[in-house]
Simulated scan of single mutants.
Amino acid sequence: MTARTVQVTVDCSDPRALSEFWCAVLGYVFPPPPPGFESWDAFSASLPPELRNSRSACEDPDGVGPRLFFQQVPEPKVAKNRFHLDVRAAPGLEGGERMRALEAEATRLIGLGASRVERHEPAPPMQAGHVVMRDPEGNEFCLD
């Protein structure tokens, strides 16, 4: 069997803005524009108005993490996600040190447009503690 890669697709109202947010969260970058275009803005300007900002993507510059693809949909988000991302902001840390690292990252992400939902304290033996957040369009994710 051939190895598979994963692309995470997000339905949203503003693909460019949401991809910029996630690039900043994860340290991702925009892929190169299509051949013949110096920038994504130049490519977008070549499209009919109704297709501009209909899609965007960001990628791990090291090629390790999954590609994120954002596609515009007409309907708003109305319910809790059944699938979410865990942003590993404090791997290997425990207790107070872990929670301080998660709080520092939560503060940074709020500055980028995220909102905080709730904090879950460490509860041994199964939970190390995490912070539930929402991206600018209300999609839940966790700082883990």
Rank of each mutant, 00 (worst) to 15 (best):
M1D: 14
T2K: 12
R4V: 14
R4D: 13
R4L: 14
V8D: 08
V8T: 10
T9V: 07
D11L: 06
D11I: 02
D11K: 03
C12F: 06
S13Q: 13
D14E: 12
R16H: 01
R16A: 00
L18S: 05
L18K: 04
S19Y: 00
E20D: 15
E20P: 03
F21K: 09
C23I: 05
A24Q: 15
A24I: 12
L26G: 11
G27F: 11
V29N: 00
V29K: 00
P31D: 03
P32E: 15
P33C: 13
P34M: 06
P35T: 05
G36Q: 02
G36L: 07
F37I: 08
S39R: 06
W40L: 03
D41K: 06
A42D: 15
A42L: 11
A42Y: 07
A42K: 02
A45P: 12
S46M: 06
S46Q: 11
L47V: 04
L47E: 08
P48H: 02
L51I: 06
R52H: 01
N53W: 00
N53R: 03
N53V: 10
E59D: 04
D60P: 03
D60I: 07
P61E: 14
D62K: 05
P66K: 00
R67A: 07
R67S: 04
L68E: 00
F69P: 02
F70Y: 01
F70S: 01
F70E: 00
F70K: 04
Q72V: 01
V73N: 08
V73C: 15
P74V: 04
V78M: 05
A79Y: 02
A79H: 01
A79L: 05
N81L: 07
R82S: 15
R82K: 11
R82W: 05
F83T: 12
H84G: 11
L85R: 00
L85K: 00
D86H: 01
V87S: 09
L93Q: 09
L93D: 00
E94A: 12
E94H: 09
E94F: 07
E94D: 10
G95F: 13
E97D: 13
E97A: 14
E97G: 12
R98G: 08
R100N: 10
A101M: 04
L102T: 08
L102D: 03
E103Q: 08
E105I: 05
E105D: 11
T107F: 04
R108Y: 15
R108A: 12
R108I: 13
L109Q: 08
I110F: 00
I110M: 02
G111D: 11
L112N: 01
G113P: 00
S115A: 09
S115L: 04
R116L: 14
R116Q: 09
R116D: 04
H120N: 10
E121F: 02
E121Q: 13
P125M: 02
Q127L: 13
A128Q: 15
A128L: 15
G129L: 09
V131E: 01
V131Y: 00
V131I: 15
V132F: 02
V132R: 10
V132D: 04
M133S: 11
R134D: 05
D135V: 14
E137P: 09
G138D: 15
N139T: 10
N139G: 12
F141H: 01
L143S: 12
D144G: 13
D144Y: 09
D144M: 14
D144V: 15
